[in-house]
Simulated scan of single mutants.
Amino acid sequence: MSNDERRVNRTERLFATILLLQNRPNMTSRDLAEHFGVSRRTIFRDLRALSESGVPLTYAEGGGYEILEGYQLPPLMLTAREAATLLVGTEFMKLQSDASLREDADAVALKIRSVLPREIREYIDRLRDRTVLDPYWLHAVQQEEEEEGRWYRLSEAVARQRAVIMEYYVESRDELTRRRVDPLGLVYYTDHWNLIAFDHLREDIRNFRLDRIRSMHVLMERFEWPEGFDLARHLEERGAGTASRRITLRFSKRAYRRARQAIPARIEEERPCGDEIEVTFYFENLDYVAGWLLRYGAEAYVVEPAPLRERVLALAEAMTERYRTAETGEKA
């Protein structure tokens, strides 16, 4: 273990000691040594360091250490692991297409870094230099200026229950529609954000992709929250609703390790099937699933429904024909 790693581990142990003594006072040095798996000499050094840093440690009459009542940790005290988790979170936000989210993520990361102890700050800096979530994505996240800040404005509309007027592109009909909606929540699916909202045009709760909103305006007018509405329950019910289809797929074990994390719905059942894994879930958009399955090639197979199998076959045949046509054209 390097000196830097030892310093980080000690810092984490010091934080943990404060929390432990606040919740379980009167612990002896032997108790603390057994809890952390270190020697009593190490515990004595830790306690001395805490006292020197201003933590009001006392030794109780009944034996054992405690911290005077009323002492609170500073507002932001993070272990290296917690700081690393926040780092991954801010790096994920930098993959968003909305430029304002990327700028906010940078600002948050800078503020967190500025209040970390030196040992953890250096650890985080090394981790940042050696962590890349997606080396190619940033080349594709170019967004038009008028779309910047859309996620934040919609999140405010959700929190403040403000109605929204928007122009929304319906891809299936190649049509631009005007909608008045009551925003109820934001959901992230695989690679894009979605707005869950009550659509006054359809008089129903619908899903709208943020990247298909062409323009929008948040009204000052408040809407009434639907009685008994719960976003998580709505999404679960929608996944198994009447519009959804039961989908059963088979993957090679190697492909399933990748595919499992990207399945666009809650997994209802998964079971081994010889050298393959069979998985069942409910989803309404068969075209989306068909396109998604192509990335796994011959290592994925549609068991049901038949219309999904037909869509995958049609896509594969279209790809084959395109390559065949291109090859024939080159030879000609």
Score class of each variant (00 low, 15 high):
10 R>K: 15
15 F>T: 00
23 N>Q: 14
25 P>S: 06
25 P>F: 03
30 R>H: 09
31 D>P: 04
35 H>R: 14
35 H>F: 12
35 H>N: 10
39 S>G: 10
40 R>A: 04
48 R>N: 07
49 A>F: 00
52 E>G: 07
53 S>G: 03
54 G>I: 00
55 V>Q: 02
56 P>C: 06
58 T>W: 02
61 E>K: 11
64 G>R: 02
70 G>L: 05
76 L>E: 06
78 L>S: 01
80 A>Q: 09
83 A>Y: 08
87 L>A: 02
88 V>A: 11
94 K>V: 02
94 K>A: 01
96 Q>L: 14
100 S>W: 05
100 S>P: 01
103 E>H: 12
120 I>L: 06
121 R>I: 00
130 R>K: 11
132 V>P: 00
142 Q>F: 03
146 E>H: 15
150 R>W: 07
153 R>E: 15
153 R>L: 14
156 E>P: 03
157 A>H: 10
158 V>P: 10
165 I>G: 06
169 Y>I: 09
173 R>K: 13
179 R>T: 04
184 L>P: 11
186 L>D: 05
189 Y>N: 13
189 Y>K: 12
189 Y>A: 12
197 A>S: 08
201 L>V: 13
207 N>E: 14
207 N>A: 04
210 L>I: 05
212 R>T: 03
212 R>Y: 08
215 S>N: 13
216 M>Y: 15
216 M>W: 15
219 L>F: 00
222 R>I: 00
224 E>I: 13
228 G>C: 10
231 L>W: 11
234 H>T: 04
242 T>G: 03
244 S>D: 03
245 R>D: 08
246 R>C: 08
254 R>Q: 06
255 A>E: 08
261 Q>E: 14
264 P>L: 05
269 E>Q: 06
272 P>S: 03
277 I>Y: 00
279 V>H: 02
279 V>P: 01
280 T>G: 02
282 Y>T: 05
283 F>M: 01
287 D>R: 13
289 V>H: 01
291 G>R: 15
291 G>T: 09
293 L>H: 01
293 L>E: 05
293 L>P: 00
300 A>Q: 03
300 A>P: 01
300 A>M: 09
303 V>T: 04
306 A>Q: 13
307 P>E: 05
308 L>R: 08
311 R>L: 15
316 A>M: 14
316 A>V: 14
319 M>N: 09
322 R>Y: 10
326 A>N: 04
327 E>Q: 05
330 E>Y: 14
330 E>R: 14
331 K>P: 01
